[in-house]
Design a protein around this nucleic acid. Structure first.
Lengths: 255, 255
DNA sequence: CGGGAGGTTGACAATCGTCAATCAGAGTGG
DNA sequence: CCACTCTGATTGACGATTGTCAACCTCCCG
């Protein structure tokens, strides 16, 4: 299923603006300039590709709703998911500057994206220093998350790895304002979870059940994650939110 | 050993300029502006720290000679190296914008670094769009390498992982103009190699010897890597240089 | 010549992967 | 309403890659 292209609403880019303004305080004119970026909105079905490895992207792409992942395929056909994205995430800013995509971006659920011509992204980045700075910071935080993922798949065992991912997802849901962050539906199959953690689907299954057995999470159905004691799960997942570079107010989660 | 601070040479920042100019063609005034950045040069001994996780860095740091790594420590004290750096690499640009360091940077060998006040980095990035763009691209390529590392430790087996790292190192040596890239001395212990690949030192040792046994590499001493057939090693390491975003001329290595 | 760091090897253990069967739930057509 | 089917989740038995522990070797350097 590949759905059509919609008319852009007046402030379709609001989720992107919120994200950028989170990194860098904007004045009114910068806010308006971001919202005024030319773009088209596209509705995508689950599993639709936004970018394919090797593409020369003509657009930058912002996720307006739904969830998406970035992934790479290795020699024997196995897949590694390198990041998970949600509302407001700028999903392929790098392609505006780098040219050929070094990985694919794929929808996890149905959702909408805004496509912004790469020239426009480049223009605003350099005409409006605060906007450019916010975009740069956004890509630096992305990079910080990749580093954490290298450590996660490289040096943590399966239960810790999965607990860490559940914590990251929870906290990012909260920052994005997407509902109850201690009781959420993980928008992916266990196979996708395996591809994100460098494990196999079977082992992910066993590990989830073992986290459940240890009362670190509850699951009323296979995808629903209920976090009873956030601090306990964070400890189990060796989770320290510093790498997300959130403002002071957020990490208070720990309470 | 922590050596002193030297007088900056007239063009100490040349390695940084070369790197930036590789990503973005500069005019003469931009070149001069980069070289004119205020900075101090510091000589560091092997294993000295450049940045420690948690630091609020007042400087950005460019590696002028020697090798360095970035790493993170996980709960049980194990370490994950997330990248390896060499001459010309801008090693903590992100700290200029992000504030608190989310990982440590440590010298692998003795070498020199240039410290540039973070305000100066911010200033040049926004006063000189081409310089800013080059720095931005540099951070995006960094991020691309992190993604590849996530896939490397997440989805490749030990021999493939190590072969991949050897290929990446080889190619980056070549681009940086640091001698014979098919016959080089790997500036790290097997324990450090293990921390970079998410393995243990013992297993790294066995795997290196097995690569040797398969005639994918030769080693006249434990650290010297001789690549007889580059293509063969690249195949064994599932190595495709696209993620390094080099210009067209370099990947010709494959011949 | 002694000490130490790093490299090498073997025996054994454990985490995690593979294969295969079964189960549960959603959607579909008769 | 009820097979039927498909995807995803779950479980068990077994196997393999990788980790752990411990010994020993080698080289460099003071």
């Amino acid at each position: 299923m590949q759905l059509g292209t919609d008319e852009p609403g007046a402030d379709a880019l609001d989720p992107m603006l919120r994200k950028l303004a989170y990194w860098q305080k904007f004045g009114e004119s910068d806010r308006e300039a971001v919202l005024a970026l030319p773009h088209s909105v596209k509705s995508l079905g689950s599993n639709n590709y936004i970018v394919r490895e090797g593409d020369y992207a003509a657009h930058s792409c912002v996720l307006l709703s739904g969830f998406a992942i970035r992934h790479k395929i290795v020699a024997d056909g196995r897949r590694q998911i390198v990041s998970i994205h949600m509302k407001g995430d700028i999903v392929d800013l790098q392609n505006s500057l780098l040219g050929r995509a070094d990985h694919s971006v794929q929808m996890l659920t149905a959702g909408k994206v805004a496509l912004i011509p790469r020239d426009e992204v480049n223009r605003i980045a350099f005409e409006r220093p605060l906007v450019g700075k916010a975009m740069w910071i956004d890509t630096l935080v992305d990079a910080s998350i990749f580093r954490e993922w290298v450590a996660n798949v490289g040096r943590r065992d399966a239960p810790t790895r999965i607990a860490h991912l559940l914590c990251e997802f929870s906290l990012r849901l909260k920052v994005a304002g997407l509902g109850e962050h201690t009781n959420y539906e993980l928008p992916m199959t266990q196979e996708q979870l395996a591809d994100a953690t460098g494990l196999t689907a079977v082992h992910v299954n066993r590990t989830l059940r073992s986290l459940e057995g240890d009362r670190l999470i509850e699951r009323s159905n296979p995808r629903r994650i209920v976090i009873g004691d956030w601090r306990k799960l964070a400890d189990a997942g060796d989770f320290d939110s510093a790498y997300l570079h959130l403002h002071e107010s957020e990490p208070a989660l720990a309470h």
